[in-house]
């Protein structure tokens, strides 16, 4: 059973819809005990980094997410929160599960980076098993993580500069793009994650 962390931030329904479509059981909850007992957690997120961290803290779920030892997947802003520090609006501590900072994308191109972009896979993250290099996924963001440890980088994309698209560090995974809005490629990535949780 996969728990979707409900801290008042993000489109939980489409994540739940996609897992159900794939035939995996999931639940949406803000209850730390229930979430801690899940086979895997998904941390969604939309909006600005400091506001989302405040809401996660106000929900009393920071400890639950940080201490989770089974597979964890942050999506979009949820991936950014995995990092040590965010620079959006103001410098703000993140969950610190992936060493690195979240910065405004340094590109000549228009921001937000919105639309379908192709993945360059790095390393061998279980998220991308069976996903061809160059597959397109759907992004909507202006900030992106910069991982301190190159081994944590699972995929990048090119938007006038190299942009971090996915991280995997032990049980902790992140997708800057929206797998739940990335067609068949996104469903494959979610299926890979869900299978880690069984």
């Amino acid at each position: 059973m996969i728990g979707i962390v409900d801290y008042g931030c993000g489109n939980l329904m489409s994540v739940a819809n996609s897992l159900e479509f794939l035939g995996f059981d999931c639940f949406v909850s803000s209850d730390a005990d229930k979430l801690s007992a899940a086979g895997g957690l998904i941390l969604p997120g939309v909006g600005a980094f400091p506001a989302a961290m405040e809401m996660l803290e106000a929900s009393g779920l920071v400890g639950c997410v940080k201490g989770f030892t089974r597979p964890l997947l942050g999506i979009c802003l949820g991936m950014q929160l995995l990092f040590s520090v965010g620079e959006e609006v103001r410098e703000c501590a993140g969950l610190g599960l992936v060493p690195g900072r979240v910065r405004l994308i340094d590109t000549e191109l228009k921001l937000p980076h919105i639309g379908w972009n192709s993945l360059s896979l790095r390393g061998a993250s279980p998220l991308f098993r069976g996903v061809p290099d160059g597959s397109f996924v759907y992004f909507v963001h202006s900030f992106a993580g910069a991982a301190e440890n190159p081994a944590d980088v699972a995929a990048v994309t090119d938007y006038g500069t190299e942009v971090l698209a996915s991280v995997s560090r032990g049980n902790v995974h992140g997708c800057q793009f929206h797998p739940e809005k990335s067609g068949d490629t996104g469903l494959k990535i979610l299926k890979n994650f869900a299978e880690l949780c069984v």
């Binding site: 489409s14 159900e20 739940e180 809005k181 990335s182």
Partner: peptide, 8 residues
Amino acid sequence: TAREIFIP
């Protein structure tokens, strides 16, 4: 639609 189609 949202239960069956996973694009924006």
